[in-house]
């Protein structure tokens, strides 16, 4: 009991000592000034051009349109992204068709994608370009899901071959002004492909989508 009282008295004495304010001032946390975000997004329309380069038989050159609703500074919902791809044949596919008489319909690389996703924007900031011009930018992370349609001979076959897909993505946004921004996105999807034709089997395909986009921030609440 006596020891406890002595300890309390010592603490009180140290606390009231003349150096106590100096010690307290020395232990103050570092102060950081953070400005409000200059550019806020509300309704984002995005047009993207990109590539789907991972398929061994057909490489895709893609064009996408999307609409994203920004719920707040940190969270947004990409309600729909529609992607169509122009497919080019690889040397491997050409060899299989020409030398081994494989039917061209056997490959069915991803041709269309319909996805939706939840995006987070935790990082926002400014960068100086050559220590002169200031540009605003943000980093984006997202979880996406949707369906992939393969390159089949007919629309009916294509609709039969709906492949569910889930994916993760990262993006980088450079704000050009209140309305326009440029984006670089890399999204990797796992697509679950059922056997449709005789010689096919169930496959989990990796679909990488890399896009460069121009975004339009419309119907701003602050406009």
């Amino acid at each position: 009991m006596t020891a406890k009282r002595t300890a309390l008295a010592l603490v009180a004495l140290l606390g009231s000592a003349p150096w106590a304010p100096a010690l307290a001032a020395g232990s103050e946390p570092e102060r950081t000034a953070i400005q409000e975000r200059k550019f806020q997004l509300f309704h984002e329309l995005k047009i993207s051009a990109g590539a789907m380069p991972l398929n061994a038989f057909q490489k895709g050159w893609s064009l996408s349109l999307s609409y994203t609703h920004h719920l707040n500074d940190y969270l947004s919902w990409e309600i729909l992204q529609v992607t169509g791809a122009l497919l080019t044949s690889t040397n491997l596919r050409d060899s299989l068709i020409d030398q081994f008489a494989v039917p061209p319909e056997d490959f069915a690389a991803p041709r269309f994608m319909l996805t939706t996703g939840l995006e987070v924007n935790p990082l926002y900031g400014k960068q100086a370009f050559l220590n002169d011009e200031v540009s605003h930018h943000a980093l984006i992370g997202g979880v996406y899901g949707g369906i992939v349609l393969g390159d089949r001979a007919s629309v009916a076959d294509m609709l039969t071959d709906l492949r569910p897909a889930v994916g993760l993505g990262v993006g980088y946004r450079l704000f050009l002004d209140e309305t326009y921004s440029a984006r670089l996105d890399i999204r990797d999807f796992l697509s679950f492909r059922r056997a449709i034709r005789e010689n096919e089997s169930f496959q989990v395909e990796n679909v990488l989508l890399m896009t460069l986009s121009l975004s339009f921030n419309l119907w701003r609440d602050d406009a």
Binding site: I34, Q127, H137
Partner: peptide
Amino acid sequence: PFYGKLTLLNN
């Protein structure tokens, strides 16, 4: 050419 600061969750 680019150098700057990012805020994490405005914090």
